[in-house]
């Protein structure tokens, strides 16, 4: 037995040494910028850029086929780093995006019409009577989005809805693709008011299936001081949607929505710093959060 162990170990060792020597002797000079770029990229290989992994993007950037801000999850920080490697100026960069879950249909608000006991996959659940929830537009709560997230930014909350951790979310959009209900969207990171419902049925029907659904009453549309929220046709019906280019995050619509379908989320301190206005913000952020003088703040 010992001969066997020694013999195999020796063979392995010899081949290992040969390979090790060969990798030194036969090392091919690769473009050092590509290696630097690979280090600069996040390394999650999420594929949001459309290239096969971070190394694919690094090669494309080095060859000038991809833009220096092509890495979506990396955002401005990575774009700046890449720009310095490539000797370019990143400019102001794109506004960062983060994912939002547009459903508040917890167990209490929208009943389950049957117990789903199949594979924990939203795609599977969607194929049985359009899901187990009363509201066919709602979140099944099976966590396909959480599984898909390469950055662990989504966890399933106790209310069976996904929680998006804004500090980890990079806006790569993989969960948007993964969700069969199209509940998750990407919106600008500075947007803190959004319509958290996807039910496009008539008001009566949508209220019947969920107590926090958009009932298309039009209060928000009439009341918005900036005409940023409109009931727009969507799918077979209509739903309230916010035009992010006009919205000033004043929150009037959320306060006056009779069902609570419009949500206000706590912004990230890096994007907003309303509690501490003395701290200066980067110019690109202040532009999108400037006060609209609506006087509706309390």
């Amino acid at each position: 037995m010992f001969e066997a162990i020694i013999a195999l170990a020796l063979i392995g060792l010899i081949f290992g040494l040969v390979l090790g020597l060969a990798s030194k002797k036969l090392a091919v000079e690769t473009d050092p910028t590509i290696d630097e770029l690979i280090l600069a990229l996040p390394g999650a290989n999420c594929g949001a850029c459309g290239y096969p992994g971070c190394s694919g993007l690094a090669e494309a950037i080095a060859n000038g086929q991809a833009n220096i801000d092509a890495c979506i999850p990396g955002g401005k920080e990575v774009a700046d780093h890449i720009a310095s490697i490539m000797g370019m100026d990143a400019g102001s960069g794109k506004e960062p995006l983060i994912a939002r879950v547009r459903c508040q249909g917890t167990h209490e608000k929208s009943k389950y019409i049957y117990d789903y006991e199949g594979i924990a996959s939203c795609d599977m659940a969607a194929s049985y009577f359009q899901g187990s929830k009363d509201c066919i537009y709602g979140c099944f709560g099976l966590g396909t989005c959480a599984q898909s997230c390469p950055f662990d930014a989504i966890t399933m909350g106790e209310d069976n809805l996904p929680d998006i951790h804004l500090d980890k979310c990079t806006g790569c959009g993989i969960c948007v693709e993964a969700c069969p209900q199209n509940i998750i969207i990407l919106s600008r990171a500075t947007q803190r008011v959004f319509v958290s419902c996807c039910n496009t049925d008539k008001g009566k029907d949508s209220r019947k299936v969920c107590t926090t659904s958009c009932i298309k009453c039009g209060i928000c549309e009439r009341g918005c001081p900036f005409e940023a929220i409109k009931i727009i046709p969507s799918g077979n019906g209509s739903i309230a949607r916010i035009d992010e280019t006009l919205c000033t995050n004043c929150g009037w619509c959320a306060d006056n929505c009779p069902t609570g379908a419009i949500e206000i989320i706590e912004p990230l301190p890096v994007f907003f710093n309303m509690n501490n206005p003395t701290e200066s913000l980067p110019a690109s952020d202040t532009a999108s959060m400037s006060c609209g003088s609506c006087t509706l703040c309390k």
């Binding site: 390979l19 090392a27 091919v28």
Partner: peptide, 8 residues
Amino acid sequence: FVEMVIRK
């Protein structure tokens, strides 16, 4: 090994 040699 062959891969390395060919690459070089």
